[in-house]
Design a protein around this nucleic acid. Sequence first.
DNA 1: CTGTTAGCGCTTTCAG
DNA 2: CTGAAAGCGCTAACAG
Lengths: 338, 338
Amino acid sequence: MVTSRDVARAAGVSQSTVSYVMSGRRPISAETRRRVEAAIEQLTYQPNAGARALASQRTQVIGLVVPFAPGVDTTGLLPFIETIASCARAADHDVLLVTADEGSAGLERLAGRSLCDAIVMMDIEADDARIPVASALRVPVILIGVPDDSAGLHCVDLDFPLAGRMAVDELAGIGHDRIVVVGHPAEVVKRDVNFVRRFHRGAADAADARRVALHVVAPVPPDRAGIEAVVEQVLAVGGDRPGVVVPNSQAVQPVLQALLDRGLVPGRDLSLVALWPDVAAEAVTPAVTNVSLEPRDVSRRAMQTLFQLLDPEQEPPSELVQLIAPRLTRRRTTLPPS
Amino acid sequence: MVTSRDVARAAGVSQSTVSYVMSGRRPISAETRRRVEAAIEQLTYQPNAGARALASQRTQVIGLVVPFAPGVDTTGLLPFIETIASCARAADHDVLLVTADEGSAGLERLAGRSLCDAIVMMDIEADDARIPVASALRVPVILIGVPDDSAGLHCVDLDFPLAGRMAVDELAGIGHDRIVVVGHPAEVVKRDVNFVRRFHRGAADAADARRVALHVVAPVPPDRAGIEAVVEQVLAVGGDRPGVVVPNSQAVQPVLQALLDRGLVPGRDLSLVALWPDVAAEAVTPAVTNVSLEPRDVSRRAMQTLFQLLDPEQEPPSELVQLIAPRLTRRRTTLPPS
DNA sequence: CTGTTAGCGCTTTCAG
DNA sequence: CTGAAAGCGCTAACAG
């Protein structure tokens, strides 16, 4: 292994000069810089990450806690990870993956062992046991998701109330005066209260403002039979030309299928708007009018905030909670405006 | 930050004793061990990863190169990452994510900066520019995928020839004597020669053995119009009761749709077997009879091999290339045996 | 069975 | 503008 000592020797300078050439933390004469850079090039020198971390107290690593755990829906997770990784690299950092099934222990390991400079946590529950642990760590933590009490931690998430409003506004705008929301499984409602509640509140507000009727069908069992029953309810309650909102990603495909099986074509006989990733919405037939989760915008904002927190020069964003506006894309499952 | 020196002081022992208690690399009296462990507990001591890496020359980190790059299909990637992360944790390692768009530079960074002890590389192309770079690194590298020349690197992958054989055997067993394979886009064929070629060879072998006709339709354009044309070809060449094989993950859904649009129901009018992740095959309607990519088995085997390579006690597997048998799951898109 | 000590390779004072 | 030297916190000889 080639070390900075080797480079120093080859360039005829001291080890510290090599360090300063690399960090730019003090002025270096053009000639010295040239010689050092040549030696670095020639020996293909790369600094040892452990040594650097030890001496500088910075690892150049971001810890990422991803929701890999038995039974958790990971649809649409990849764009988040992808964007986070790419933002990290853009700021000369790497990403260390920690799975959520480690719980709080994973967080304590990341910080306690100085494995990373900061942590991004995804899939936050409304009352998440990890929040108090996270807020006591020596490293900044940023949440993707909004818990009931963020304990002073910065959060970034989709603006779910706005998403609810947008979905209902779209349907009301088309002319639907009976709107039915297909809710979540009982277990998700319990776990994710916040997300679900926030979307529904937005939907309800919009329905009030528009003076259209809003029904919520929930809980929605995750199995086929349950979905069938739910669709029956939707049709019973929604009249002959219902506007259907499906904020439950897991249910979109089966609901679509159940409707088609009954000869009801979304976009012809009724309208359907889903809270669903764009990729999924585009892939099915008919392509679904969706409110997107904006994983890239959310992740980008989270990383931006994180590096702000990491940089002593900058001051942290004043808002603890930052919400990203969703985007509604009209596709084939909504009727043309009447 | 609490260090091993603090623990040593609190326990009334030397720093090295603390280290040895943690590593178990030398016998410790019960009494000393008790005191040290109590101090560790009491101070909630955690060793500094950088310092440990620097002193021991082991980072306890596995580098994972994932195929995040513009235009690469990441369907079914998550189970790989998930399994790799969990195997790593089971062996007290963490996973550092590196995206493929960094190319060889990412590999050189991982090894050159001693960021990790070993590397797992996914999405290997037949003639992958990173292979020679990887095989020259100071850390062991294991490939998920089989290049034309692995340059001495260990590879783990699905047994694609077997997958091809299984698909054709299934269709021939059902009674189809005209089998049509829906191939890949021109660009993938070029990029991924190996994977594609291997599957096709297996399919062809099985067709020979079974004495059934085998047609390959390729290249398959990724757009809707292209798929339509391809499906026309399939029907033209496949007769009135074709057995269709779709090893192209991207094409399964659109092909399915194009067939249904023509009133042809897989499982009633023809049989269709796809090379597709189980989750996807289950999610669509009708559920697709599939040959699975076995991401968990492949990943598990890769990690097992990797830790074998990392452990000087064990000797590495004699086979450089290890193939995992796929599994065929009968679902709704294949006819009952005639 | 335990302690002492010499680094691991880098950053960052302190001196010049 | 540059060099010398003191650690960062840990492991692993070496010595008893």
